[in-house]
């Protein structure tokens, strides 16, 4: 039973990272009506920058983490302003394909600038594991989970209870109507890009101590955040977050009790099968397309 809970906690920790990334994906998907395939890669690049700032300066880790999230925020805004905004007349699928171009650029640049060696990234809290009724838990894990819960809570509060959140939700529901109602949809999509990229970067900084800083460090998180969004449904903001935690826990449990080699294949097959029965995800609603 202790082992089971150990796995659950590990799953919630991983799920936190998926949740932040998935929230970023859904923000852009809903407001800008496109998929940002480069979110994970940009996060990876940010983790490299954070590592070097940490290694070369005396700044404390939390300050570096915040700094790196701010940098990501600006990078997200720049991508929207410099590339996406100008691409309105490109081919259908042009915008998501451009994010593939961004993947290629950042994946290529990272080893050029930072070298091919993986870097060890320190944990936020270096203290030894706590023992809670036989279940071991690193304080760092606790920090990751609580930061995620607090951030998600703030984001949901803003989405549900503020004018800003209303603007985002109206844009997500129907961009044309939103524009007619006077919602500054361009600013909303700019903000979505900024926040989403920042969330991706934060998720990368959280995972960095657990793996290490490499070019491929975000590949699993990125893919799993997409899968989490499918599981929870792209049509709500809370669905992907719940999906992320389910995915994280399921991943650990399958990995421990069934097979650690085949966990990815088993998990993806299960979720693919799940979409046969619930194509809109756990919380998704079917859309009626206007003709």
């Amino acid at each position: 039973m202790q082992i089971f809970f150990q796995n659950v906690i590990g799953g919630i920790e991983a799920g936190s990272m998926y949740a932040l990334a998935a929230l970023g994906l859904v923000l852009i998907y809903r407001t800008a009506k496109m998929s940002n395939f480069a979110q994970g890669t940009i996060g990876m690049f940010n983790a490299y920058i954070a590592y070097f700032v940490l290694a070369r300066t005396n700044l404390p880790l939390p300050a570096v983490a915040i700094l790196s999230v701010i940098v990501a925020f600006v990078v997200g805004a720049l991508i929207e302003l410099v590339i996406m905004r100008r691409a309105s007349s490109t081919i259908p699928m042009g915008k998501p394909i451009m994010t593939l171009g961004l993947i290629i650029i950042f994946q290529g640049l990272a080893p050029m600038i930072f070298g091919p060696v993986p870097f060890q990234f320190p944990r936020f809290v270096q203290k030894p594991a706590l023992d809670i009724a036989g279940v071991k838990m690193l304080p760092n894990t606790l920090v990751i989970i609580s930061v995620t819960i607090i951030l998600v809570a703030i984001l949901f509060y803003v989405l549900q209870n503020t004018r800003l959140g209303l603007a985002v939700r109206v844009t997500a529901a129907n961009e044309t109507t939103a524009r007619l109602m006077g919602v500054p949809t361009r600013a909303v999509s700019l903000g979505a890009w900024s926040v989403a990229t920042a969330l991706g970067a934060l998720s990368a900084i959280m995972v960095a101590p657990l793996t290490s800083v490499t070019v491929t460090m975000m590949e699993t998180i990125h893919l799993n955040s997409f899968i989490a969004a499918i599981l929870g449904g792209f049509s709500t903001f809370h669905g992907p977050v719940v999906g992320a935690f389910i995915l994280g826990v399921a991943n650990n449990i399958i990995s421990y009790y069934i097979s650690s080699k085949w966990v990815v294949a088993i998990l993806y097959t299960c979720i693919l099968a799940f979409t046969i029965f619930k194509p809109q995800g756990l919380f998704g609603k079917a859309f009626v397309k206007k003709v």
Binding site: A87, G94, I97, M98, G101, L102, I103, I105, G108
Partner: peptide
């Protein structure tokens, strides 16, 4: 060349 192809794809699309 990998980086360049990423730049080219964005430039072509734009």
């Amino acid at each position: 060349s990998f980086v360049l192809s990423g730049v080219v794809i964005i430039l072509v699309l734009l």
